[in-house]
Design a protein around this nucleic acid. Structure first.
Lengths: 205, 205
DNA sequence: TGCGTGTTGGACCGGGTGGTCCTAGTTTAG
DNA sequence: CTAAACTAGGACCACCCGGTCCAACACGCA
């Protein structure tokens, strides 16, 4: 992919994360990417909408590098990986001081009702996360209680994290997310067989 | 408060819930409230921003009628009330088929970064919820383990519910919220002393 | 009788929106 | 060498935005 294209995508991703999709204008993206004018932009993207879709894809890929890679890591105990994944979410938020939030959650809240095209794409993103967590839970099933519902638990984990990130953003306080991460790990630990180790890291009350 | 004012507020609340604040225009509100023109609108509100603030207040009051009233209900066991509160959130979402989402969560995601005025008001809303749940947990402390952290648990409950509502909206599937509600109740049950009853309603796996 | 409040309806403003079109010069790959 | 892709810059479009101003009328209350 061309340099300029990724340059535009990066600038757009930043602006959309800051202001949302509808409140980000094409002109601002052009300014941010230091393009010469509109024609330059429309040489690469046929519409603002298409730009939004590609930004979403790119955000997912970037997140996949850091988050999903951890979930897949074959050399680490699956439940330990899950714990590391949660830590990674916290760390990612810490980078922006808990101000930025989840790019998917933000877009979801902004556009789920209004724009079907975005809705289905965001749904797909969440589904890919959920399926990754499900297969991790499947892998961990010897350590888990027999009645663990992987579908439900995976959804719960994602919902708790998305909600936590949102609350953190509103309160401008990273410790909200950290606290919820602790509780979430304890909840996951609840599903672990008594004989197994609880990979929840140090648990400070 | 005058009839017309509430009429405008209602129309605005609906539109903002559907499309978000920035994507809702004053003209649309005027059309929705069947006003004669802009001067009519600006007779009641000095700006779109002020309208937004009042809509937020109203949404909170309306929610308080249904949600916070349950949390305060003095004749019911506190943990039972918490369970009923969660059920009420599910029921509220069911009314819109899980499409509408939380008016606070939506605005939070849309405006937390961009608009400080809204951010602090939404923060206050969440804080009032959290404090209500905290005092409920305080009331229930004889039934709870000694090491229960009420601040953290109240935040967790709100985050899980907000996240659940968002996921439900994205997936357009109410059962997502229902499943998370079940898990959330189980998580709360985790904090209950072994001798006490677990007021989580019927628990279907 | 007047005065304040509500109602109607429209003209108007500066500024922004996504998007098109056109011309022309510069790279780069076949 | 030539064609296609890229860069540049600006004019222009119809439309929407929040907000102001004005003139006129209806109403109940003092």
């Amino acid at each position: 992919m061309s340099d300029r294209r990724t340059q535009i995508l990066d600038a757009a991703a930043m602006l959309i994360a800051e202001r949302g999709f509808t409140s980000t204008s094409v002109d601002e993206v052009i300014k941010g990417a230091k393009l010469s004018g509109k024609s330059h932009f429309y040489h690469y993207f046929k519409s603002k909408e298409e730009l939004g879709y590609e930004v979403l894809n790119r955000q997912f890929e970037r997140f996949a590098e850091r988050g999903l890679a951890i979930l897949r890591e074959p050399m680490i105990d699956p439940l330990e990986r899950l714990s590391l994944f949660i830590d990674a979410v916290v760390a990612l938020q810490a980078e922006s001081g808990g101000r930025r939030g989840s790019p998917f959650g933000n877009l979801a809240a902004e556009l789920a009702d209004a724009h079907e095209g975005f809705r289905v794409r965001i749904e797909a993103v969440f589904e890919r996360w959920a399926s990754q967590i499900r297969s991790l839970l499947w892998e961990a099933r010897p350590q888990l209680h027999d009645d663990v519902d992987a579908v439900r638990l995976s959804r719960f984990i994602i919902a708790a994290l998305e909600g936590a990130v949102l609350m953190t953003r509103v309160k401008r306080d990273l410790s909200v997310l950290e606290g919820i991460a602790i509780d979430l790990k304890r909840f996951i630990g609840m599903h672990v067989r008594d004989g197994s180790t609880l990979p929840q890291g140090r648990h400070v009350d």
